[in-house]
Design a protein around this nucleic acid. Structure first.
Lengths: 138, 138
DNA sequence: CCTTGACTCTAACATGATGTCAAGGTCCAT
DNA sequence: ATGGACCTTGACATCATGTTAGAGTCAAGG
């Protein structure tokens, strides 16, 4: 099947299918005489796997590992679970960071009148908070 | 003062200071005869403002607006607050997305034995979930 | 005065994941 | 055989940031 159909069926854009091929995440598919890429069900299945993993926020590097594990029927599920737990931790960190931002901003917004008056704690806080503090947050 | 000191004092890397200058987020500083950039307190203050806004997750475009509001002593605080509230909404969306990922992944991980056996719901789910579903999640 | 080390300059390339556009070839149904 | 839908590669764009390289500058100490 053509790349367009493989894209529709897998949920991976044509652009990204070609990209994954180029970076070696997926094997180069068969080619027709015309040069058109020719995908089979197995290829689409693999692409769908990738799309799902991406939707869970795994990076390409992690997906490469997951694909390897997926294709190795002998691997211990512990390995997979370990990767998943690590990724959950990473997600937790990102969530915590965003929540901290939200809390700070929300607190500032609550202290801002939000009317015609020009004074605003949001701006004055942005203008005055110490750089060292910020560095720590980063 | 030199860019190195301005960087330390503001918490913005030298790379990003030059970048912000190039994209017009900050005005070009004075130059010495040698060509070295020469910053004053006002410049550092502005950079610190930018660093703080970035730490709260504002994009460069949003920061440009905030800087404009900051430098306009007549503006209504309502404008600033509106921007902040919009940004809080954006943060909430990101947080919700990450939390959904986390929940899915956590549920899969809990159903994975995590031992020597090869069967693992994490991989089988990645392999089988429908692409349409994923598209919706995106 | 000269050397040395720390600092600065610009420009370019890299990251990660993705989009878009352009110029050209292919496929198929009418 | 023609038109429209599809495919090919390549290049440029995004966003914020890092890194590196080659070259110039500054200041302090011998």
């Amino acid at each position: 099947m053509n790349i367009g159909l493989a894209s529709t069926r897998s949920g991976v854009s044509q652009r990204m299918i070609r990209h994954y091929e180029r970076i070696g995440l997926v094997p180069p598919p068969a080619r027709r005489d015309s040069g058109y890429r020719d995908y089979d069900e197995r290829d689409v299945h693999r692409l769908r796997f990738i799309a799902n993993a991406r939707d869970l926020g795994f990076s390409v590097a992690e997906i490469a590992t997951l694909l390897g594990l997926w294709e190795d029927r002998e691997r211990a599920s512990a390995e997979v679970k370990h990767l998943a737990l690590e990724h959950i931790e990473a997600l937790d960190e990102k969530i915590a960071k965003l929540q901290a931002m939200r809390a700070t901003l929300n607190e500032l917004a609550e202290r801002c009148h939000g009317d015609e008056r020009p004074d605003c704690p949001i701006l004055s806080e942005l203008a005055n908070a110490a750089p060292s503090t910020d560095a720590e947050l980063r």
